[in-house]
Write a protein that binds this DNA or RNA. Sequence first.
DNA 1: TAGTCCGCAATGGTGACATGATTCACCTGC
DNA 2: GCAGGTGAATCATGTCACCATTGCGGACTA
Lengths: 260, 260
Amino acid sequence: MPSALRSPVLDTLGRRITSGELPAGAVLTLDGIGAEFGVSRTVAREAMRLLEGLGLVRSGPRVGIVVLGHDEWNVLDSRVIAWRLAGPGRVAQLRSLTELRQAVEPLAARGAARGASAAVRDELVAIARRMRALGEAGEGDHEEFLALDIRMHQLVLRSSGNELFAALAGVVSVVLSGRTHLGLMPVHPEAEALDAHEAVANAVAAGDAAAAEEAMARIVREVRGALDARGSSAQQPTNSASSDQPVSAQSSGAGGVKSG
Amino acid sequence: MPSALRSPVLDTLGRRITSGELPAGAVLTLDGIGAEFGVSRTVAREAMRLLEGLGLVRSGPRVGIVVLGHDEWNVLDSRVIAWRLAGPGRVAQLRSLTELRQAVEPLAARGAARGASAAVRDELVAIARRMRALGEAGEGDHEEFLALDIRMHQLVLRSSGNELFAALAGVVSVVLSGRTHLGLMPVHPEAEALDAHEAVANAVAAGDAAAAEEAMARIVREVRGALDARGSSAQQPTNSASSDQPVSAQSSGAGGVKSG
DNA sequence: TAGTCCGCAATGGTGACATGATTCACCTGC
DNA sequence: GCAGGTGAATCATGTCACCATTGCGGACTA
């Protein structure tokens, strides 16, 4: 059943390498892989080929399959991101990703203000309204709030008019869910964040590019601040998330989060 | 000899799909691929697996290998970018990439100002000085100027302290060389650009994060303006670059451009 | 006409084999 | 004693034949 892309071989090996359990320079062989996972050499070869395409390993005759250093990895690939987010160093990874968000999302908001469809504009203000309702209600449903948050950012990125920004939608959703599930979110949303989200929605709906960019910059700056405050004080997050909470399985594709 | 990653099968198929020659929904078979390229089914399978990992195709029993829509592609992958940059729609692709630069590079400059090594700071000011010398000399060596430009941006991205930004170094170098080779550069560099590059170098060297960010934003805004001016007036660039100018072969890895 | 069933065509996966390249070790020659 | 070349061992690479699995699609039936 595993369609070779979701082969346990690929997944396990990828996680081992990105986690550092298999350090750079470590050598594997197809026979070894096949023996360990109980698969034939062909499937081991294909998994290895995928890993090679991700820049995690290089293979050559007589030398076997050597693990490459992290500076050779395709760190922008969704799979690599998911693996690293599931291993140690997740906080550092989260910080890098947040910085990327900080760079991209304001510009995406600007683009969305110029090009979003009417349906998207409507949905954005509806989401913002619902978020405010949930936030002001106090002990609201964290999961629903998260889903709305994700949905909003995905809508903005996908409506930005730039496919490269849209391609980051999956990454952003992983970051958002990771942030809450790692306990890096305040117990209930800050009023500032609520205001900023509402401002983004309204600005996009009104087609005000500058305001949308500014408001989105506010959102992600606030996020970054929270992450820095937590991350610098403790390497390990306060919440229960040592290594058994995979944060999120996959991220690519049409990110399954739906909302009103 | 081709190590399967650089297999002509993978390359040709990737280019055909990204160029639209094989539209979404088109169906391939392993036997067909093997027959066309004169390879066995196994190697065709591995190439197909790579393509599947890039999100270009999906394969299933009885259905064969179906080409996916461009919204499923890993558009951030260096190979996909290179393929699309070599086919039609290169101008649109260049615009998307430039917008991504616009988002990322200012923040990268900020990071570099905070964390670049002494050697990098020195090299940056040396590069800026040389660029000014070349630019003011008038009919200077375009290729050397381009190499310096690329080197500078790569240094900044790699010194930004964010591996995700560093991963975009290859992409940026492709964009830069594409820009000049497509005839989207002024015959000799604008004084404004020269000033901005010098300002970036000096700000990074001085550790002035805000100034570095501002100057880099100036650079990339100017770039964007030039691209929009050319791109909106004519879909096809003025230069001779219909479809036989591959712009640049590969982009990933340690981008081969060296300079003093 | 609608629903079910079966066949087929394609991938998915396995094992064995030949090939080619690279590294290591040994061996010769100066 | 040392350097350089030659050989062999070892691994990936490529190929082939084979069986299992799986969905699509047409045919058959009620």
